[in-house]
């Protein structure tokens, strides 16, 4: 045991991160500044400018149609959102919502193509599977460290850390969904002379849609679960209020902000789940 000294793995990682930070500084700076500005603009100049009553009304109406004209979800939306604004957490909610939206969007944009690649190529699947395992099981706090190194503090590193943590389900479910398409349908598609792209867009993706949407739902939920953690590096939102509550040992504040996150989570979850219907389903 003594023959091999402690390997300087930590040093290697640090060095690699430093090197990345220096080498790609222009890129990180660009993302940090321009993307950061855009996120801020989206949250503060768009979402927060909408009158609260109008925002709640629009979401409630959408909920009504999304849940196939049932009344439960809209009622929940109205009471939930009203409660959050009543607790004077509206700005925090908008910030959190922005973080979740951007993190999820980026996750899906990255995740779906990788999932397709994985489904089409056995080798890629072999390589990516442990990488995905790694991404999901590594404690989420660890991502905060390079995130800060690359993007300093604020919303952008929050989004970055959330994307790493939230992307795997989309990749996995896309892969699964495509691989689940029955052999006979693939044969049918081939027998009619489809190109690879035609097969993908006309058969595999439509057939896998339900599974992919389930993956996206998971991704959104994971992104939301990163909100509190991301607020440790300065991402604005409900998470920050929770942290404040923690630091001051103020149970009430922490609980109310936590409740806000739960309400947001339920609304987003029901929305994404109800959007997940497939043509030709028997129901």
């Amino acid at each position: 045991m003594e023959l091999i000294p402690k390997l300087p793995v930590a040093e290697w990682i640090s060095d690699a991160t430093d090197w990345l930070t220096d080498t790609f500084e222009f890129l990180f700076d660009f993302v940090k500044n321009d993307f950061g500005d855009f996120i801020e603009f989206f949250a503060e100049s768009l979402l927060m400018q909408i009158p609260i009553w109008l925002f709640i009304a629009v979401v409630a109406v959408l909920a009504f149609f999304v849940s196939k004209k049932r009344i439960g979800l809209p009622v929940f939306v109205i009471f939930g959102l009203w409660f959050i604004q009543n607790q004077e957490l509206w700005e925090e909610l908008m910030n959190t919502f922005t973080l979740v939206i951007f993190a999820s969007l980026i996750s899906v944009i990255i995740g779906v193509p990788f999932g397709i690649w994985m489904a089409k190529n056995k080798f890629v699947e072999t390589i990516l599977t442990p990488v995905l395992d790694f991404m999901q099981t590594m404690p989420a706090f660890v991502y905060l460290i390079p995130a800060v190194a690359f993007f300093s503090i604020g919303m952008v590193p929050g989004v970055f850390a959330s994307v790493i943590f939230a992307t795997p389900p989309t990749v996995r479910f896309t892969n699964l969904g495509i691989r689940q398409v029955s052999h006979e349908l693939i044969e049918a598609s081939d027998a009619f002379g489809t190109t690879g792209a035609q097969k993908l867009f006309k058969v595999q993706l439509p057939m896998a849609k339900k599974t992919i949407m389930a993956g996206i739902n998971q991704t959104v939920m994971l992104a939301l679960s990163m909100v509190v953690i991301a607020s440790m590096i300065g991402a604005k939102g409900l998470g920050q209020t929770v942290i404040t509550g923690l630091q001051r040992a103020d149970v009430g504040t922490g609980f109310v902000a936590g409740l806000g996150i739960v309400i947001l989570a339920i609304i987003i979850d029901r929305f994404t789940q109800n959007l997940n219907t497939q043509r030709g389903d028997q129901s």
């Binding site: 349908l185 027998a191 009619f192 035609q198 006309k202 043509r279 030709g280």
Partner: peptide, 30 residues
């Protein structure tokens, strides 16, 4: 495959997300 051969499958091989018409159209669409 597009022009000369067409295949009919044992378990039908229909696309469940397409209507009957869209299924029949498939080969032509391709």
């Amino acid at each position: 495959r597009r022009e000369k051969l067409s295949m009919v499958f044992q378990r039908f091989g229909l696309f469940p997300h397409r209507t009957v018409l869209e299924n029949a159209e498939f080969g032509l669409e391709i």
